[in-house]
Design a protein around this nucleic acid. Structure first.
Length: 125
RNA sequence: UCAGAUGGCCGGGUGACCGCGGGCUUCGCAAGAAGUUCGAGGAAAGUCCGGGCUCCACGGAAAGACGGUGCCGGUUAACGGCCGGCGGGGGCAACCCUAGGGACAGCGCCACAGAAAUGACACCGCCUAAGACCCUAAAGGUCCGGCAAGGUUGAAAUGGUGCGGUAAGAGCGCACCGCGUCCUUGGUAACAAGGGCGGCUAGGCAAGCCCCACCGGGAGCAAGACCAAAUAGGGACGGCACGUGAUGUUUUUCGCAUCGUCGUCCGGGUCGGUCGCAUGAGGUGGGUGGUAACACCCAUCCCAGAUGAAUGGUCACCACUUGCGUAAGCAAGUACAGAACCCGGCUUACAGGCCAUCUGACAUU
RNA sequence: GCGCCCUUCGUCUAUCGGUUAGGACUCAGGAUUUUCAUUCCUGCAAGAGGGGUUCGACUCCCCUAGGGCGCA
C-alpha cells in the first residue's frame, strides 16, 4: 500500500462536519471522521485535525495532549488512513498520561472500527 | 548547634532514534530537496498601572464632567514603580508594616447604653461662704443660688497626673506631660530639638459626600497599510431586442419612466495572502560618579517569531520525591506554568535546592 | 486585545455601617384526618477566600478564586 499524503485541517467548518460524521471512543481518544467534500478532495491525500478542549486542563496540558496525538498520527495515518477522508482526533482527560503504545493501539482500533462502519454504510447505500 | 530576618540565584542532567517552525547558503521554472544555525519564562499568567508604535478627533487650547494619585526629596521616557529620609505602629533584636493632604468651606453620620454624643449636659451628687426667711442666739432648716471633684454608660465624655487653693469647686494658680501658636537652631524639605506665649476656645469619621493640589483626548497590532479569486450586487461604454407583459403616474385612453440579455472596463471589497514583525529606553563584562535607585563611558554579542498556532515524541542511565520493603530493590512521579506588537513596573502561582549578610539563644575555646 | 457585572441557608432571593442576617420552596418533627393530600405550629440551615479602614464590615477599600456578559 502506498503511503498517503497527510494534510492538516484548519477551518472550523471542517471540524464541525467531521463531528457530524462517524464517531468512535477508544481508550484515551475520540476519533471523528467523514469523507472529504468534493471541492477539497485530491487523490492520494487525506486530512487530519486535532482538538483539545478546556476540559483537558490549562494550556500546557492541552498542548502536550495535542503533541502526543500528532506524534501518534504521524506514525499511523499514512499507513492506515484512507485517502479522500477527513479525520479529527479529540484529546480526552487521560491522553496526556496514557502510555504511548496504548495510545497507538487506541487509534488503530478506532480507525479499523470506523472503517468497518463506513463500509457497512457504503454497502447499504 | 537551634530558631529567625533580609537580599540574590537555579528550577532536572547526559546520550540515542524519529520529527516540527524560522533565518542563511546551494540546487531547482516552481513545488520542494540538501546542508547549517537558532528556537519559551521567572513569572511568558492576571490585566492593576506607565510608555513606545498606529489610526481617529481637534483650535496651540481651556473649562466642566468622570476616573485616578496624595508625608518629603531623588530617580526615570513615564508611572500608582523604585531608592533614600521623616512621622506612626509591631518585634528582645536583625528587621517588618503603614491610602500618611484638609474636619473653623459646607452637608451628613456617631446604633445600643448613658444625665449628656457636640450651639455639650446636670441623673445620682457636692456646698450653704455672701443675700433673704424661720429661729432669742448657736446649731439646724427653707428659698435664692454656686459647682462639676466623685459615680454610672460607652469605642469615644471638652486636656491628664500631682500640689496649692476654696463653702464646695474650677487652668483659678504652679510643676511635668499633651495641644495650639510664635521664634531660634539643624536640615533642600518632610521634620526634629530648644525657648517664649496661650490657658483649652478646637471630639471622631473624608477606604461618607466633599474641598485642595497634581495627572489623564479616544481607541487599540483583530491597530493600520497593501495585493486580490469565485459568487451576488453597483456604475460607465458598446452590441442584440424594441415585441409581449408587469409596475408607477393619470378617472380612463394616449403618452412618459423603469424592469431584459451578452461583452469589456471601473470602484468598493469577503475567503485568502503580504507587510507591520523584532537592533531594542537590548543583553553580558569592565570602569567612573552617586549611600542607593540610577546615570555616563568603553568593549563585546545578535539572542524565538508561530497564525487550528513550531519549540516536540519515544527509549536508556543518573539525580530527587512518594509508597512498599530489615535490606537489596520494585513501582509511580518530576513545582507553577506555554511567547502572539514591543518595553518598564506591580500583583498572584511555584516541588525542591543553593549562596551571601545579619539578629537572638545555648554550648565550647 | 479592551471593558463591565455577580458570588448570602440544599435552591431562588432581601438588606441605609449597628439584626439573633429576613422571606419563599425543600428537609425533619408534631397537630388536624380512619389514612393520604391540603392546612397549621415548631425546628435545622448561609455572607466565595485573604488582608485593611472603622468602636463596629454582608455592606467601604485592596488582592485572589470562581462564574457570567458586552465590544472589536
Amino acid at each position: 500500500m502506498d503511503k498517503a499524503i497527510v494534510d492538516r485541517l484548519k477551518k472550523r467548518a471542517d471540524f464541525l462536519r467531521a463531528a457530524q460524521g462517524i464517531r468512535r471512543v477508544e481508550g484515551a481518544i475520540t476519533l471523528e471522521t467523514c469523507a472529504t467534500p468534493e471541492g477539497d478532495a485530491a487523490p492520494g491525500r487525506l486530512r487530519i485535525g486535532f482538538t483539545a478542549s478546556k476540559k483537558i486542563g490549562n494550556a500546557v496540558a492541552r498542548n502536550h495532549a495535542k503533541r502526543r496525538l500528532r506524534a501518534a498520527a504521524q506514525q499511523l495515518l499514512p499507513l492506515l488512513g484512507r485517502p479522500r477522508h477527513d479525520y479529527v482526533l479529540v484529546a480526552r482527560g487521560t491522553t496526556g498520561a496514557r502510555l504511548f503504545p496504548a495510545l497507538l493501539s487506541d487509534i488503530t482500533t478506532a480507525l479499523k472500527s470506523a472503517h468497518r462502519k463506513l463500509d457497512a454504510k457504503a454497502g447499504e447505500g
